[in-house]
Design a protein around this nucleic acid. Structure first.
Lengths: 203, 203
DNA sequence: GTCTATATTGGGATAGAC
DNA sequence: GTCTATCCCAATATAGAC
């Protein structure tokens, strides 16, 4: 799928990915047409099929390009944490999960991730399973170290609140940053404070 | 748009609304076709246009049927609270917002509400403005009574975390209720505890 | 108010020239 | 690897009979 020379061919391929990402975000999978995407990317309609075979293939490629690096970073953060200290604290674990998204990702990646939750089951389920399954397992195990008395179900429920607050932050960030001077570092701290406090109390 | 007799005509109209709600939820606005909706509702394709004029009109009707009663209930809860006590507490305010959704709405309504956030801007922006604008204003004012020292921007940010956790709860509820025996009352309490603690800490 | 039939558009996908 | 042309299908919408 990937050739060794990387100039003109990659730039067309990359332009398609960039345009697709933006249009999938604003219109959703069904609402985005290959015609709109390829026109935006200044390539021929057939190029999309040449590089990605199908619209689903293109969506999948957009997904993996952005989500996998983030989740690898999250796992790296977590492993480093567990190796350094026998029993990490809650804030460190949540930070390992939230930091790569809130601080080290561009807005396009974030909005694509948020958009994912609303796509049809049959489209995203295989992507989620491959991209997030291992991650959630590892974080649940880590959380269990901090809350050995708490059931895994309970930990998963609280963790879903964290995910929800994070996604809402992504959706609204540009909105809030438009109103006041709210940097992404500030948003990150506010979100982390909120989640740590919420997680702890919820015994 | 609405006739006085309410038997066969309303039942067709209602069946279309019900089917539309379910299919919009699972496929999104663009992914849902009038053909799929009317076929599911056992009415003719043309009936959808007869009752709702266009696909957008149908979407709008689904929105108003479900969201307006919920938001009226939220406002009623809030007004009762403010009239009863000079200075309500945070938990009461958040409960006024969350209770109508988590305890008194059917799953279809909830999923439709969650799905909303991901629809294209131009589709939902007018609906959101009309359906949620006043609500958010009133709740922000109420929160300002509890946190007079905190900026409105900050209150809005924290409130968005609450909304995010709520939406994630909607998305995942059937999932969690499948795993363990987690009733909606339990989910509601866990969510409320999480949000109150998160909101308070985040000074 | 319900249905058939159809106008019209737009979409994904592919064949085949270059 | 890029482009044109086209196939084929599905979609919204509407006209008009009943």
């Amino acid at each position: 799928m990937h050739t060794e020379n990387a100039d003109r061919t990659d730039s067309a391929r990359t332009r398609i990915l960039d345009s697709a990402e933006r249009i999938f975000v604003s219109k959703g999978f069904s609402g985005a047409s290959l015609r709109a995407i390829t026109s935006d990317a200044n390539v021929n309609l057939a190029a999309a099929h040449y590089y990605f075979e199908s619209k689903q293939g293109l969506f999948s490629a957009v997904f993996h390009r952005r989500i996998e690096p983030i989740n690898e970073q999250r796992l790296t953060n977590l492993e480093r944490l567990l190796n350094a200290t026998g029993k990490p604290d809650l804030r460190q674990i949540l930070a390992a999960f939230l930091r790569p998204v809130l601080l080290h990702s561009n807005q396009g990646t974030l909005e694509f991730m948020a958009q994912l939750t609303a796509e049809p089951e049959e489209l995203i389920q295989p992507l989620i399973a491959r991209g997030f399954g291992h991650l959630i397992t590892r974080f649940t195990v880590a959380l269990k170290l901090v809350f050995p008395e708490t059931s895994e179900l309970d930990l998963n429920i609280r963790f879903s609140f964290v995910v929800g607050a994070m996604l809402q932050t992504i959706f609204n960030r540009s909105f809030f940053m438009g109103i006041g001077d709210v940097s992404k570092e500030v948003m990150y701290q506010k979100l982390l404070d909120f989640c740590v406090a919420g997680f702890l109390n919820n015994e």
